[in-house]
């Protein structure tokens, strides 16, 4: 029995402590090891399968075009070069303009930043009103907003185009911001409402007795407790809006297009040989911001999504 225990990593229990004998645990311990090995092998294989395209993208974008056409697609770059990235960023032709992705990257930033801030802000206020300043019919309003989450993109294209031209925002960046904000409010409101529902109403009451008003309570008490859900809302909205193609291609054109539309132009409109290295570099440039957001704030995303559940 002593030998059996000594193979265990944890200190052995004092003799006579009433614990069940450990002898029969040795085989189980070994079996667990095999199981774990199997799990890791599977996980690594899966991860590799998923990362394969990324690997191809990265290596291809770092190869000169001759190497791509001359050799294997998968191998490590022989003549490492950043040229494709440079061209994709500032020289590639999109339509008739050969400006690279740079101005469209800026467009996307100009769209995504105000749209994320506005939709998150409005969602927060909506959630606050729907939970802490309930009015007759609040549930109906919430139900209708929720319905908005299930509306397919295609369904709103034509009404939206009509509205934008009526208010003179057709084809402009502010117009696209408006589209993203209105489409996003359903989701952000849902996030914030479900989070605020878990905050006790006594908090608002105590603040009222203390003399705080509608905005004071929101600003000083409710918002500071909501960092996790603000992060969730921002990540969600950022990814949705940055990656959006349909609204961008429908409601903007030419120099006002977001990066996804420009990327499509680069990749699909080529004369002569297909420039895979530039296409890959461009695709990665377009994808990097969402990737960065997840790397920086992903931890908060999961925490925020589960925060309400844990509290309630």
């Amino acid at each position: 029995m002593a030998e059996a225990i000594s193979t265990l990593p944890s200190p052995s229990p004092a003799p006579g402590s009433g614990r069940v004998t450990k002898t029969d645990e040795t085989p189980r311990y070994n079996r667990a090891w095999i199981g774990r090995l199997f799990i890791y092998a599977t996980l690594i294989a899966m991860a590799a399968a998923y990362l394969m395209p990324l690997w191809v993208m990265v290596t291809t974008s770092l190869k000169p075009l001759e190497e791509i056409y001359g050799g294997s697609f998968i191998g490590f770059p022989q003549n490492f070069t950043l040229d494709a990235w440079r061209v994709a960023w500032s020289q590639a032709c999109i339509g008739t303009e050969c400006t690279g992705l740079k101005p469209y990257f800026v467009n996307s930033l100009l769209i995504v930043i105000p749209a994320v801030v506005l939709s998150t802000g409005i969602g927060a206020i909506n959630g606050y009103i729907l939970t802490k300043w309930r009015f007759p019919g609040a549930n109906l309003v919430f139900g209708l907003l929720l319905f908005g989450c299930f509306l397919p993109y295609q369904a709103i294209l034509i009404p939206m185009a009509r509205t934008l031209s009526l208010i003179g925002l057709a084809g402009s960046i502010p117009g696209l911001i408006l589209v993203h904000v209105s489409y996003g409010i359903c989701f952000t409101t849902l996030f914030f409402r479900n989070y605020f529902v878990t905050l006790p109403d006594d908090l608002t009451k105590a603040a009222l007795v203390d003399g705080a008003g509608f905005f004071r309570i929101f600003w000083s008490i409710i918002l500071p407790t909501s960092i996790p859900i603000i992060v969730v809302s921002c990540i969600w909205q950022f990814t949705q809006i940055w990656n959006d193609f349909l609204f961008g291609v429908s409601f903007t054109s030419g120099a006002h297009s977001p990066i996804t539309v420009a990327l499509n132009n680069i990749v699909n409109v080529t004369t002569g040989r297909k420039q895979y290295n530039i296409d890959m570099a461009a695709a990665m440039i377009a994808g990097i911001p969402t990737l960065l957001v997840y790397i920086v704030a992903g931890r908060y995303f999961v925490r925020g999504l589960t925060a309400g559940a844990v509290k309630g």
């Binding site: 006790p200 006594d202 908090l203 009451k205 105590a206 603040a207 007795v209 008490i221 500071p224 407790t225």
Partner: peptide, 11 residues
């Protein structure tokens, strides 16, 4: 007023 849940401002 003092509340059952204390209602202290958490942050």
């Amino acid at each position: 007023m003092v509340f059952q849940s204390y209602a202290l401002y958490p942050t």
